[in-house]
Nucleic acid binder design. Structure first.
Lengths: 217, 217
DNA sequence: CAGTGGTCTAGACCACAAT
DNA sequence: TTGTGGTCTAGACCACTGT
């Protein structure tokens, strides 16, 4: 079947396959989790488009498959105390101020990720007052910051009542949670980020030189 | 609650919270997907240990959290025609022979991943005849191969009837599927691998230098 | 209004393990 | 035998949408 094509209604599937509707729904939920189909509460169930493949760090120019238009929409910005997680990343005090930016990342108008990014406020005065729709790394360059390395941790989560609606996914849908820290050439942590991707719509890809630690698969 | 502690039975939860058992099960399934609890069909429901954190592309010496003992158990080995996916990775013909090794990776005796690895057979005569429990990359070094970079793609899958039992997970549990290609210093693809992790038990971490492509977050 | 998926109920039977 | 989770049933009501 082709993307966009409609599947039979759940009630019809349950009759034709001689199972209860709950059982038919469970089977469809597996396909939904795999990203093969999607459901619309009022219209029905449809074949999904293939997953997008994004590079780690989610860079707008670096989408592998699924051509289209990238976009980042600012949901909110805030200046606040760092708190425990960001303070640990930056090696600062929990009360030190940080800039926080939450953005919705789209591909072809389809929401694929919610990105919450933290920066030390003292390094970046006025950072929140200017353009935040484009590349934040380009903005950092304006402050004379040269980035060097990223470390990221990925795990599977369940989309909650806060993130799910932003991604137009139902609560309970599978998500990929990525925690990122980006360092500049002096080894200082400049960026701390928490990204949540729609796991049914996205695959992540990573290039990694093995440099001096070839070793022990 | 502490790891290993038992939760009340589903039937009891459904009474005390005044919901049907199916509804209680659904709530528990969210916690199970998050890796916070696990269920044993005959013993009950228990609080899980924290997830392990593994580094991408490497293993035994590189576990971040969750100290314990790593192990790799060979499930099977095989010499076969490359097939479409491996041929594309190696840039060879689909009929060229490859060595294939499937191993079960454990941490503290707990199965965390199934790893299926492909190597061009002509480069590695006798590769399957020797020790395969330890580091395969060390074995490659014996053939004079120096590895250089890895590229990996990660996506969320549902564990099927083949992989699920190997990981001692029930069918339908969430998994992380990683496709890896490792290249040597001449730019030749040496290793093609398909890994499946228990998503409820594992987080993946990646270090990545940004080198010459700082860009456009 | 009819039709969709989302949710929930109150049962039922199963396999399995411990007692 | 008892108790556990795993599965399934045959309904029900809801919110929402398009006609």
């Amino acid at each position: 079947m082709s993307p966009g094509e409609a599947l039979p209604p759940e009630r019809e599937l349950s009759v034709t396959h001689e199972v209860s509707r709950m059982t038919a729904r469970k089977a469809l939920s597996v396909l939904e989790g795999e990203g093969l189909i999607f459901r619309d509460a009022t219209r029905g169930t449809f074949v999904a488009k293939p997953r997008l493949t994004l590079r780690v760090g989610s860079f707008s120019k670096e989408v592998e498959r699924g051509g289209g238009r990238a976009g980042a929409e600012v949901i909110w910005t805030r200046e606040q105390p760092a708190g425990q997680a960001a303070a640990q990343a930056f090696g600062c005090d929990e009360r030190d101020p940080v800039h926080v930016i939450q953005r919705l990342r789209r591909w072809d108008d389809e929401p694929v990720a919610v990105e919450t990014t933290y920066y030390p406020a003292n390094l970046l005065p006025g950072f929140l007052d200017d353009e935040l729709h484009g590349s934040l790394w380009d903005r950092l360059a304006e402050y004379g910051i040269t980035l060097s390395t990223t470390t990221a941790t990925v795990e599977v989560v369940t989309l909650d009542a806060e993130i799910g609606p932003l991604l137009q996914a139902r609560q309970g849908a599978p998500g990929l949670h990525m925690t990122r820290q980006t360092y500049d050439v002096t080894g200082r942590c400049i960026e701390y980020a928490q990204d949540v991707y729609r796991a049914d719509r996205v695959a992540l890809t990573i290039d990694r030189p093995l440099h001096d630690r070839v070793g022990d698969s």
